[in-house]
Amino acid sequence: MSLLEIFSHSSTVLLIVNSILYSKYLKAKDAAYKYFAVYLILMAINQTLVTIYFELEIDNTFLANTYMILQFIMLSLFYFEIFKQQERRKGILIALFTLLIILGVQYIRTPDLFLNYNTFGILATSSVLIFYSIVYFFYHIGDKELKLYLVNSGILIYLLGTILLFSIAKVGLKLAREIEVALWILNAFIYLVFQVIITTQWFVDRKRKKNIKN
């Protein structure tokens, strides 16, 4: 088994575990936790389909588009909830609907794009989410009870890695096969780190709640 497969399979398993752990928040009063739980469940389903299609040797590239769109919607809603300032919340909704309309027009005008990697869509949605993550840290870094701070860090790390990988693809650099494979391995590793961070956040929150009860 290659290093890429090890990282990919490990992150998929951990993603499924995280979706199960966070599923308890589906009935939570805190909408931020609820949206993040839904995000993990949708990503787990999508990633499971990716793995099944891969094992059956069926092209699964279109699932990258469903992953991108679902991720953008759910994480936008997640940040909408953790931002309390009305101006920022309004800005998130405007960005969400604007980008979804742009992507919709893209797919309507070029249906085949849905069966390929939409580099523009990936870069655009990732950039917006990275901006939210940075803004959240900038305005709330001094808060004693910073909500889901580890998750926010993981989102930032993971999406920066995604931006790096697809920016290189967008530029159209002709890389050696070994370098291209190394970049995909790096991306898979970063996603695995992201899942580890999410798991850590769950245990941190659990410990905090126990301390509050005691």
Score class of each variant (00 low, 15 high):
L40P: 03
I41Y: 03
L42G: 10
L42M: 14
M43T: 11
M43D: 03
A44L: 01
I45M: 09
I45Y: 02
Q47E: 10
Q47C: 06
T48E: 03
L49F: 11
L49T: 07
V50L: 14
V50R: 15
T51A: 14
T51D: 07
T51C: 02
I52P: 09
I52T: 13
F54T: 15
E55L: 14
E55K: 15
L56W: 08
L56N: 15
L56C: 08
I58C: 00
I58R: 11
N60C: 05
N60W: 12
L63V: 03
L63Q: 05
A64T: 15
N65F: 02
N65P: 07
N65H: 09
N65K: 08
T66Y: 07
T66V: 12
Y67E: 09
Y67C: 02
M68T: 14
I69V: 15
I69S: 11
I69F: 11
L70P: 02
L70D: 04
L70R: 05
Q71G: 15
F72V: 07
I73T: 08
I73C: 04
S76E: 07
L77G: 14
L77V: 13
L77F: 15
F78A: 12
Y79A: 03
Y79C: 00
Y79R: 04
F80C: 01
F80P: 01
E81N: 10
E81S: 12
E81Y: 04
I82Q: 08
F83R: 11
K84G: 08
K84C: 01
K84L: 05
Q86Y: 09
Q86D: 06
E87F: 01
E87G: 00
R88L: 08
K90C: 00
I92E: 06
I92M: 02
L93H: 09
L93F: 06
I94V: 14
A95H: 04
A95Y: 04
A95E: 00
A95F: 07
L96R: 06
F97S: 09
T98V: 05
L100P: 01
I101E: 02
I102C: 06
V105M: 05
V105S: 08
V105P: 08
V105D: 06
V105I: 15
Q106P: 00
Q106S: 10
Q106V: 00
Y107R: 13
R109H: 00
T110P: 00
T110G: 00
T110W: 01
D112S: 12
L113N: 05
F114L: 13
F114R: 12
F114S: 09
L115D: 13
L115T: 09
N116S: 10
Y117M: 05
N118Q: 04
N118K: 06
T119E: 00
F120K: 07
F120L: 09
I122N: 08
I122P: 02
L123M: 09
A124K: 08
S127T: 10
S127Q: 04
S127W: 04
S127D: 00
V128K: 14
